[in-house]
Design a binder for these strands. Structure first.
Length: 401
DNA sequence: TCTGGGGTCCTAGGACCC
DNA sequence: TCTGGGGTCCTAGGACCC
């Protein structure tokens, strides 16, 4: 019996945050920011804000995601800047995922604005483009924003295809189209080839994905290591047998970081930031019923170099004070106390769902106090969250009670 | 112009054990 | 006393993704 061909769609929202803000603004009677140079970003008066999403006209002027807003404004003084609206983005994301899921339940959400669906049991290769077009049009008509759909025989090809010409397009990249459509592209366009790998490959004379595909894995191993070399070689040849994962993987780590408006050197300012990020991380693991056995601490200097330290604890914890104390201790070890810092961060990993912490014979007598403090903190946050959601809903349905 | 925040995975070296 | 190889764990750092 011949094997059924795999048919995978990759659906990618065009300039997601920007499109989503545009939909909302258009509904409120404002002009469509998708048609002019515009970006979504953090506070534009903060010189460290960067572009989170850019409209196609903005991209045409050379404004890319992650460029500093100050720089984008220099490139384009009439640039329209809007602030992000996470509640709204979450709703848009859920709406588009739900429509995709109605085409196939074998769905893997890849990020807030991208997903894969396995259509192998839902259509034949000949109908794939029609179905993909219907999906794209349905999202546009019902939700007001456009997507690209990439159609291919595996996830890699579908994802590469969705990145072809934008917006509002369907592209195919079947295995027999790899040479024609993928090999001429610059090697940087291949998934997993970032800036550093590109530099290494280009220095070796590998400029296109085709060059990479034809290179033996031996030489490639010299350049990028064995495991990565094998993967790149497969991918450059259009091969990828990874399945569409429908299970949502549990988090393996949590972290929070804070970049200062100006580099800081004053220990009490830095400690305040450290306290803030430790609260956030600890709150998140409690919210998700985790305990962490490892705490990590990282700092970033003015030159962007990062130093980090990690420590395994004897017992898993979700107590803010314990995490904060570990972080403070490690900060003392890695920071000289005089070099200005750009950023501090705290992370936790080695997560378990252990319900009860084993009581240590030598448990800190203050532990009950710490836990009570956390409980009150979580309660305050939950109240603040509820109030925010309520205000949001009221704004959405002002005629409501 | 001067670069956010939140993740995952891989590698390499050292410690330690058999 | 010196030598080896393999396995595992831990840590630091670096690459990539959105």
């Amino acid at each position: 019996m011949p094997q059924r061909p795999r048919i995978i769609f990759h659906i990618d929202v065009n300039s997601a945050f920007l499109s989503w803000s545009a939909v909302k603004m258009v509904r409120e009677g404002q002009s469509d920011i998708r048609l002019v140079p515009s970006v979504v970003s953090g506070d534009p008066s903060d010189r460290r804000s960067i572009v989170t999403a850019a409209s196609i006209p903005a991209k045409k002027m050379g404004i890319k995601v992650a460029t500093p807003v100050t720089m984008a404004l220099r490139t384009c003084p009439q640039l329209v800047i809007v602030r992000g609206d996470w509640e709204w983005y979450k709703q848009c994301s859920e709406g588009f995922i739900a429509i995709c899921r109605s085409y196939s339940p074998v769905l893997q959400q890849f990020s807030i604005d991208e997903c894969f669906i396995d259509m192998s049991l839902r259509c034949k290769p000949d109908d794939a483009v029609n179905l993909a077009t219907r999906l794209k049009d349905e999202i546009r008509e019902r939700l007001g924003f456009t997507v690209n759909v990439g159609v291919g025989s595996n996830k890699l090809l579908a994802k590469m295809a969705s990145d072809f010409e934008k917006p509002d397009r369907v592209h195919t990249l079947w295995e027999d189209e790899v040479q024609e459509k993928m090999w001429p592209l610059p090697v940087r366009d291949l998934l997993w080839v970032g800036k550093k790998t590109e530099e290494r490959l280009v220095a070796y004379g590998i400029k296109t994905i085709g060059d990479l595909a034809r290179l033996g894995t031996g030489s490639l191993t010299q350049l990028v290591g064995r495991k990565f070399a094998l993967q790149l070689h497969e991918n450059a040849n259009g091969r990828d047998d990874s399945p569409v994962e429908t299970e949502v993987a549990e988090a393996k780590s949590y972290s929070a970081e804070r970049t200062f408006k100006e580099d800081l050197v004053e220990p009490k300012d830095i400690d305040r930031a450290l306290f803030g990020v430790a609260c956030i991380v600890a709150h998140r693991i409690r919210r998700d019923a985790f305990r962490a056995s490892a705490v990590s601490m990282f700092i970033k200097y003015m030159d962007f170099s990062v130093v980090q330290k990690q420590h395994q604890m004897e017992q898993p914890t979700d107590v803010t004070a314990v995490i904060l104390n570990e972080a403070r201790r490690m900060l003392d070890e890695i920071w000289d106390g005089v070099t200005p810092l750009r950023q501090v961060g705290v992370g936790v990993s080695r997560l378990t769902h252990e319900s009860a912490e084993q009581m240590s014979l030598f448990e800190d007598p203050k532990m009950d106090y710490y836990r009570e403090w956390d409980r009150q903190y979580d309660e305050r946050r939950a109240r603040a969250e509820d109030a925010r959601l309520l205000a949001y809903e009221r704004k959405k349905h002002p005629e409501g009670q």
